[in-house]
């Protein structure tokens, strides 16, 4: 099987999964609640409204037909209108996506930049103090709830040390002093493009605590997985051979061993991206970060159905996409995979 064929097969498989995902959100929105129309309108539903929405959504029609309509809307990018804001759910999500993605990337960057070397060092120094220290940090990372860690960091770094701001994406003063001209919605990027360094520093300072909070769980997972994979690889003959040839230890470990240990680590990175996506929701609440998480929580509290299902669909689509990318990257790194 060549690469193109592999690519196409994976994409087709992902499409099928997405269809299945839409079936689940459809069921949750229209089948599980006893009166979907009332749920759809929200808590203040009047009988007349319920009747209107029943017609409008086609709830009086057979389920397969309802699903076909729902699917048709989805394909056109119509996730329905949010009950609380009255605006299209897709638009609401799109406008909040950059903030969430910026946080997500920052967190994952920390997790990978620190997690992988930590795992490598830990495996190198197996049984030594540095191994133990790294393992403790890693297991603490996967054991602490993100919403708790966020609060802890706020107390430590804002209340007691005064090093970092409490919450938000930028300081209030910045809006007047040197406002960021938004192009991409990624504030760090936007401020850098326009050479607005005051704003860049402000945005950077604001993202530190949320990003660390978000990074804790993926960092722990990545470090643990890298350590395990490295320990396994280090036993292999080719590593012994490299050592026997007198290849510098740094090259042996970071080039030969890591290259072969990176496969499982990549899978974990892909998986944790998805965990981190739900993680951002909690981090956003704690740090008042104006992304999808805050919108999600508001929707959950208001029982804003179309919004909740839109978010679930969006999240699952993101998850499927990330998994697809991970598979492709792995096939690219390790040619043996595409033969399967």
């Amino acid at each position: 099987m060549n690469r193109l064929e592999f690519l196409i097969r994976r994409i087709v498989a992902s499409l099928f999964v997405l269809i299945g995902v839409s079936i689940i959100t459809f069921m949750l929105a229209r089948v599980v609640p006893s009166n979907p129309a009332a749920v759809y309108i929200g808590p203040k539903a009047r009988p007349a409204d319920i009747e209107r929405v029943t017609k409008q959504l086609g709830l009086d029609q057979p389920l397969p037909l309802q699903y076909a309509r729902y699917m048709g809307d989805l394909v056109r990018g119509d996730l329905g209108n949010s009950i609380s804001t009255k605006r299209p759910v897709l638009l609401e999500l799109q406008s909040r996506l950059p903030a969430t993605l910026e946080l997500l990337f920052a967190g994952m960057l920390i997790a990978v930049l620190f997690g992988v070397p930590m795992g490598v060092i830990s495996a190198q120094k197996q049984g030594k103090a540095s191994d133990l220290a790294i393992r403790v940090v890693a297991i603490l990372g996967v054991s602490i709830p993100a919403f708790g860690l966020g609060l802890l960091l706020q107390i430590l770094f804002f209340r007691w040390l005064g090093l970092f701001p409490l919450s938000g994406r930028v300081g209030k003063e910045l809006r007047f002093a040197s406002p960021i001209i938004e192009n991409t919605g990624f504030l760090l990027l936007d401020s850098l493009i326009t050479l607005n360094f005051t704003a860049f520093q402000d945005a950077l300072w604001h993202i530190v605590l949320p990003a660390i909070t978000l990074a804790a769980y993926p960092l722990g997972l990545v470090a643990r997985m890298t350590r395990g994979a490295m320990l396994e690889v280090q036993q292999q003959d080719y590593i012994r051979t490299a050592r026997a040839y007198g290849t510098p230890e740094r090259v042996t470990v970071f080039v030969y061993a890591l290259k072969n240990a990176i496969g499982p680590t990549l899978t974990v990175i892909g998986l944790t991206f998805a965990f981190a996506l739900t993680g951002t929701f909690f981090v956003e609440i704690i740090f008042n970060w104006p992304g999808m998480g805050l919108f999600t929580v508001r929707s959950l509290l208001n029982l804003d159905y179309p919004a909740i299902m839109g978010i679930a669909l969006f999240g699952a689509a993101g998850y499927v996409l990330i998994n697809l990318v991970v598979d492709l990257v792995q096939a690219w790194i390790d040619p043996r995979i595409s033969l399967r």
């Binding site: 999964v17 959100t25 949750l28 965990f275 739900t278 159905y305 679930a312 999240g315 998850y319």
Partner: peptide, 23 residues
């Protein structure tokens, strides 16, 4: 197995949130 595929296509906590909202 195909049914489990569908459930596992969601981040678990996100699915749990959506189900709780529905129930």
């Amino acid at each position: 197995m195909r049914i489990t595929d569908l459930f596992l296509a969601f981040p678990s906590l996100l699915l749990a949130m959506a189900i709780t909202a529905a129930l």
